[in-house]
Amino acid sequence: MAEDTPFTIKSDSPVAGALMLEIEIDTLSRQGGRSYNEDVFGQWNDGRFLACVVADGAGGHGGGDVAASIVRSSVLSGFAAAPGLDREALRRLLQQANRDVVARQAEGGTLAAMRSTVVLAAIDLHENAVVWAHSGDSRAYLFRGGAPVVRTIDHSLVQQMVAGGMIDEEAARLHPKRNMLLSALGSLESLPEITVSERMALAVDDVLLLCSDGVWEPLGDACLCETLRTSPGPGRWMEQLDTEIRARARPGYDNYTAVALWLHRGGEHDEVVRPLPEPPGP
């Protein structure tokens, strides 16, 4: 769920004369209209490098939630062992997470068909840069001046339809086949598609959002922007997103999870660095 008090991650050793950024973080994760939550989120940081991840499991209770938790653990532990923004290294983290999910599928039963989407953002607080990687339709957004300047492109059937000019983004959001994924972690026969962004510079007042499809699908980019512009900080934004999702919800609506990261000039906040809270594992 959303935390009552957002917290700030600070650079432990800023480069002399360079702009020092701090990241204020808040989160939201709810089961929606489902009987359990297959979404997970988490973070790791060492004062310079920060990794945040959101994973959305599929495959039923005891399956999807397990897959998402495996992905979170694999990606964050791998990043902690060798933190950095190397694009191929980040790709390998998701490839290893895929192998880890497949290994657990061998136990059979409810785990045999489990899958998980994933989106990872890796940030360098010394060089003020981010690289993200994803598979599936969990998204990362970079907002600047209250507007999205770049986001991940879903690995889904409707996204291919958008790319082909058959429908627009709004029609894709409402399309009956919007949940048909072309890639997710949990397969060795047909390796999942993994997209890694170029290195992107970050600036004061930028906002990053990582979220599962349970957030962006019912709201759309217009609502994300409108609520962002009227929010003084990430805590209030998470509250507004929660309210909007509930207001637009249909029976049996999806789990929804979001991690918001607001970038401030160093020295604006005094909170003590602490781990990002995580929902209990399966």
Results as ranks from 00 to 15, higher is better:
Leu125Gln: 05
Gly186His: 01
Glu24Gln: 15
Ala171Asp: 11
Ala201Lys: 10
Val162Pro: 02
Leu228Asp: 04
Glu278Arg: 13
Leu185Phe: 13
Leu157Pro: 00
Arg99Asp: 15
Leu19Met: 11
Val273Ser: 15
Arg115Ser: 00
Tyr256Pro: 00
Ser212His: 03
Glu38Gln: 14
Arg246Lys: 12
Gly109Lys: 06
Ala184Leu: 04
Glu268His: 14
Val207Trp: 02
Glu3Val: 12
Glu239Arg: 10
Trp132Leu: 06
Ala58Asn: 05
Asn45Gly: 13
Arg115His: 06
Gln159Tyr: 07
Ala81Ser: 15
Pro218Trp: 03
Ala51Met: 14
Leu120Gly: 04
Leu185Asp: 03
Ala2Phe: 12
Ser77Phe: 08
Ala81Leu: 15
Val259Phe: 08
Pro232Tyr: 14
Met180Leu: 14
Ala184Lys: 00
Gly57Lys: 02
Asp168Gln: 10
Met20Leu: 09
Val273Cys: 14
Thr110Asp: 05
Val15Glu: 14
Gly57Gln: 01
Gly146Tyr: 07
Ser74Val: 10
Leu241His: 01
Leu209Asn: 03
Leu76Lys: 08
Asp221Pro: 01
Leu191Asn: 08
Arg30Leu: 13
Gly17Arg: 09
Gly47Pro: 04
Gly60Cys: 12
Arg92Trp: 11
Val259Asp: 02
Ala172His: 01
Arg250Tyr: 07
Arg87Asp: 07
Pro192Cys: 11
Asp205Gly: 06
Val215Ile: 12
Glu3Met: 14
Gly42Pro: 05
Ala82Trp: 13
Met180Glu: 08
Cys225Gly: 06
Trp262Tyr: 14
Gly59Val: 01
Val75Ile: 15
Gly84Lys: 05
Arg115Gly: 01
Arg91Asn: 09
His134Glu: 06
Gly47Asn: 08
Arg91His: 13
Asp26Val: 09
Arg151Asn: 09
Tyr36Cys: 13
Glu268Cys: 14
Thr227Asn: 14
Val101Ala: 06
Pro148Arg: 07
Arg34Asp: 03
Asn179Val: 04
Leu219Asn: 01
Arg178Pro: 03
Gly146Cys: 08
Arg151Gln: 13
Leu21Gly: 00
Ser138Phe: 02
Ala129Met: 13
Leu241Asp: 00
Leu191Cys: 09
Asp168Gly: 14
Asp206Ser: 08
Ser231Tyr: 10
Ala106Ser: 12
Val15Ala: 12
Thr227Arg: 12
Gly235Ala: 13
Leu174Asp: 08
Gly220Ser: 07
Ser187Lys: 07
Glu217Asn: 04
Lys10Phe: 08
Gly60Thr: 10
Ser197Trp: 04
Leu202Asn: 04
Ser138Leu: 06
Arg139Gly: 05
Leu185His: 04
Val119Asn: 00
Pro234Gln: 11
Ile194Gln: 01
Ala140Thr: 07
Pro277Trp: 11
Val119Pro: 01
Arg115Gln: 07
Pro282Trp: 07
